[in-house]
């Protein structure tokens, strides 16, 4: 059935033409260029994903590795047995902890992204409008922190935020407060950490979008009598949307899964999915559950974002 319908498919004359067209246009150089990232993704994304998916369907055991095998060979019956455990996924919805953690991560990531955008936009704007001579220096300053380890920079923030840290010391000395502020080990500290860490990822795409902006459009707006604010809201802002979208993606996606910042700066009640995942793996030593959490995170978070990006991408092509 399958073969005959397949043959009919090829036999249809219009499709044949299309197939020939594709064949004629088949460009080996292009195929090669595309195949490299495809193979890369297959090896470093698809295969690990399948491994994690496999583990998520097993059961924990006190053994090495600490989960059961999916396929077992039953010697008596001489058959291979496939043992799938969907319990991990069911448990995800039974225990409110996981759903709360997903929501809380999305909330923290969304608020941080919005705040990062508000801080980054004027900075990117200023860099893009600055004299070309200084632009490279300013950009280099944005990238400079990357020369220090990310972990060290988060630890440095601990020195700033703790009870007898730099910020409290300064505020106490100046006399603005008379009791040290409790910032360390709170959600506020997590927001500060995320915004600080991801700021460059927001500035750079915004800068690229703003720098490309055609100056004559602004002149035209001014000639037509628009005020500076009007020009900004009706010309500059809409034209920088691709930069805003790219920047928000670059901040939001890693922030949702962030582990180090909530672990070091957050309190015990800072609920984020990256931390739940870590606990599941290292504290509970429950690999199958940890894998199930990871898979669901991927499905619920990454898939919608990828679809959104896809529509954005095709929109771009239509212009």
């Amino acid at each position: 059935m399958t073969t005959s319908s397949g043959a009919a498919w090829i036999a249809s004359p219009t499709l044949k033409k299309v197939a020939q067209g594709i064949k004629k246009k088949f460009n080996w150089g292009r195929a090669l260029v595309i195949s490299i990232p495809t193979i890369w993704l297959a090896i470093f994304f698809l295969v690990p994903f399948l491994v994690v998916f496999k583990i998520s369907l097993s059961t924990t055991e006190i053994a090495q590795p600490p989960y059961s095998a999916l396929f077992a060979w039953d010697a008596e019956e001489a058959i291979a047995v496939l043992r799938l455990n969907l319990g991990n996924y069911l448990f995800l919805f039974e225990d409110t902890l996981y759903i709360d953690a997903y929501w809380s991560s999305i909330k923290i990531a969304a608020i941080s992204t919005a705040l990062t955008l508000v801080i980054a936009y004027p900075m990117a704007y200023a860099i893009a409008r600055s004299h070309p001579k200084y632009r490279m220096i300013l950009l280099a300053l944005v990238i400079l922190p990357f020369w220090t380890s990310f972990l060290l920079r988060v630890y440095a923030w601990m020195g700033f935020l703790k009870k007898d840290g730099v910020i409290n010391g300064f505020l106490l000395n100046v006399g603005i407060i008379d009791q040290p502020l409790a910032i360390m080990n709170t959600d506020t500290a997590v927001y500060i950490g995320i915004i600080y860490t991801y700021l460059p990822f927001m500035i750079l795409p915004l800068y690229t979008a703003l720098e490309k902006l055609d100056g004559t459009l602004l002149e035209a707006a001014a000639d037509l009598g628009a005020t500076a604010w009007k020009t900004f809201f009706f010309v500059t802002l809409p034209l920088s949307v691709p930069g805003i979208v790219a920047g928000c993606m670059l901040v939001f996606i890693p922030a949702v899964g962030e582990f180090v910042i909530p672990a070091l700066l957050g309190g015990s009640d800072t609920l984020m999915i990256g931390r739940v995942l870590w606990d599941e793996f290292f504290l509970n030593r429950d690999w199958p559950m940890a894998s199930a959490v990871a898979i669901v995170m991927l499905l619920f978070l990454v898939l919608p974002i990828m679809l959104f990006r896809n529509t954005q991408g095709t929109k771009g092509e239509n212009f």
Binding site: T60, E61, I62, D95, T96, L97, D100, A101, S268, D269, L271, V276, D279, L283, N284, R285, D286
Partner: peptide, 19 residues
């Protein structure tokens, strides 16, 4: 036992996160 361990760590996570 592995089974009790799971309950235990779950309970502990609930304590820690306040959930």
């Amino acid at each position: 036992t592995a089974k009790f361990d799971r309950l235990l760590s779950r309970a502990w996570t609930a304590v820690k996160t306040g959930h």
